[in-house]
């Protein structure tokens, strides 16, 4: 999720057929520059090297979002229903074996703060008492988890939601090879 303005200019994006670092690309109508959808950074064209500002967002189930925000608006596309996007039988903390990179047991919360990156597998968060108070790159961070929402998020010491992403472990690792990984540790 990005703010699509930069230095007083507003950009309108379309989507492209190519990839960079195995991530999807978008193209702005104003300069035809090519941007990485995951990094929010222009990889080619006039805007190359500049980056959009990421906005804090939450990937979660519709049921949880609606319960948290009864007055929410919802985007619709008229004439195209698409197919609902769900995790298959995903219950964090319960063992399954699907054996591919889309194994939902590897879904987690990724965040990068002050040069430090961390990945919190939902499976591990399901084993501990949340929220968790921690320090990442000199900043106090609280990690929240919801079993109903199949999600996690992070706030700073003032309660502001931080920019995070819900990702597969493999996808996060390819982007942040130096990432730390949260583990609940051996059960007592």
């Amino acid at each position: 999720m990005y703010a699509r303005n930069l230095g007083g200019r507003e950009f309108t994006f379309d989507f492209a057929s190519g990839l960079m670092d195995d991530n999807l690309l978008i193209v702005d109508r104003e300069t035809d520059s090519v941007w990485s959808q995951l990094a929010g950074q222009a990889v080619s064209g006039q805007m190359e090297g500049t980056a959009l500002e990421a906005m804090p967002s939450l990937q979660t189930t519709w049921g949880f979002w609606r319960q948290q925000h009864p007055d929410t608006r919802v985007m619709v596309v008229e004439g195209r229903d698409g197919r609902p996007y769900q995790y298959q039988d995903f219950v964090p903390g319960e063992r399954r074996s699907r054996g591919d990179e889309h194994d939902t047991s590897t879904v987690g919360l990724g965040l990068a703060v002050g040069g430090e990156s961390w990945f919190y597998p939902l499976d591990e968060l399901a084993k501990v008492v949340t929220p968790i108070e921690t320090t990442i790159g000199d900043q106090q961070v609280t990690i929240h988890y919801s079993a109903v929402g199949l999600t996690a998020w992070a706030t700073d010491e003032s309660g502001n939601t931080l920019v995070t992403v819900i990702a597969y472990r493999r996808g996060w690792t390819s982007f942040f090879p130096e990432s730390n990984y949260f583990s609940a540790g051996p059960l007592p």
Binding site: Q59, T72, L150
Partner: peptide, 14 residues
């Protein structure tokens, strides 16, 4: 939210 016809367990970006 009342007008939306989504399933409770499908994913959204909020």
């Amino acid at each position: 939210a009342d007008e939306a016809t989504l399933e409770d367990d499908e994913l959204v970006l909020g």
